[in-house]
Computed example of a mutant assay.
Amino acid sequence: MPNFIRLIIAFAFLGSAVTLFVFGFWGWGILGIFLAILVAVTFFFNENMLVAQFYMRKENMDKASQWLNRITNYEKQLIRAQHGYYNLLIGLIESRKAPMQSEKYFKRALSLGMTMDHNVALAKLSLAGIAMSKRNKREATMYLQEARKADKNKLLAEQIKMMKDQMGMMDRQVVKGGYR
């Protein structure tokens, strides 16, 4: 459902709640206010995205993918601030199936922008992992440094450190392979 319809429905609930207040039906008016608030909240936070994030936290990628597939045209169904998060979620799901093909979603998420720094750090960390799997050390190092800068609350510090250690092991494997 397009976002402007959600706003129309929210204002209809709000208008009916005010009407109910005027005619003395306070209980139904309060219920109308709650419904108007609920519909207005879905304008800013799409319910499909919220349920998909819930299933991703539960490690159920199939259900998360089903809920994200309900969003047919994200440019019309989501507000602009959620476009980057939509691509990030699609990229995280794709990284489980086909890691190399998820790169375009992470890059699109970064180009569209995300407001939370730890999500930017997560996208850059994922891009660093993809660059490492392509044996592109320079790009992986760049993404790791950017991820460390973006991770202000140190939520991904352990993963960044582990990725750095793996990059060091990658150097040793190249050296060993070169001498044989």
Score class of each variant (00 low, 15 high):
Ile71Arg: 02
Ile33Gln: 06
Ala81Cys: 07
Phe45Gln: 09
Met49Gln: 13
Arg138Glu: 15
Ala121Phe: 02
Asn48Val: 09
Met100Gly: 07
Thr115Pro: 03
Phe4Met: 04
Gly177Asp: 03
Gly113Thr: 01
Ala131Pro: 11
Lys149Gly: 08
Ile79His: 14
Arg148Met: 10
Leu7Val: 11
Val18Gln: 07
Leu144Met: 12
Trp26His: 03
Ala157Phe: 14
Leu127Pro: 07
Asn69Lys: 04
Gln77His: 10
Lys124Tyr: 06
Asn48Thr: 11
Glu103Pro: 02
Asn136Ser: 03
Val174Leu: 06
Ala12Tyr: 04
Met61Trp: 10
Tyr85Gly: 12
Met100Thr: 08
Leu38Lys: 13
Gly84Cys: 00
Ile79Leu: 01
Gly84Lys: 00
Glu103Gly: 04
Leu110Pro: 01
Gln166Glu: 12
Val39Phe: 02
Arg138Gly: 00
Val51Leu: 01
Phe25Gly: 00
Phe13Ile: 06
Lys152Tyr: 03
Glu94Asp: 14
Gln159Pro: 03
Gly168Ser: 10
Ala52Gly: 00
Met116Glu: 12
Gly177Trp: 12
Ala147Leu: 01
Lys124Met: 10
Phe43Pro: 02
Arg138Thr: 13
Glu47Leu: 08
Met167Tyr: 05
Leu144Ile: 12
Lys97Leu: 06
Leu156Pro: 00
Lys104Thr: 01
Leu20His: 08
Arg70Glu: 10
Val39Lys: 11
Asp117Gln: 14
Met170Ile: 03
Asn119His: 15
Gly24Met: 07
Gly168Met: 08
Leu38Gln: 14
Ala17Arg: 07
Trp67His: 00
Ala157Glu: 10
Lys58Met: 15
Gly129Tyr: 02
Phe43Val: 10
Ala128Val: 05
Met142Ala: 04
Ala12Asn: 00
Leu88Gln: 06
Lys134Ile: 07
Tyr55Ala: 01
Val22Gly: 03
Ser65Glu: 06
Met114Thr: 04
Leu35Ala: 04
Ser16Ile: 01
Leu20Gln: 11
Thr115Gly: 07
Asn69Met: 10
Thr141Ile: 12
Met116Ser: 11
Val120Phe: 01
Leu31Thr: 15
Met169Asp: 14
Tyr55Trp: 13
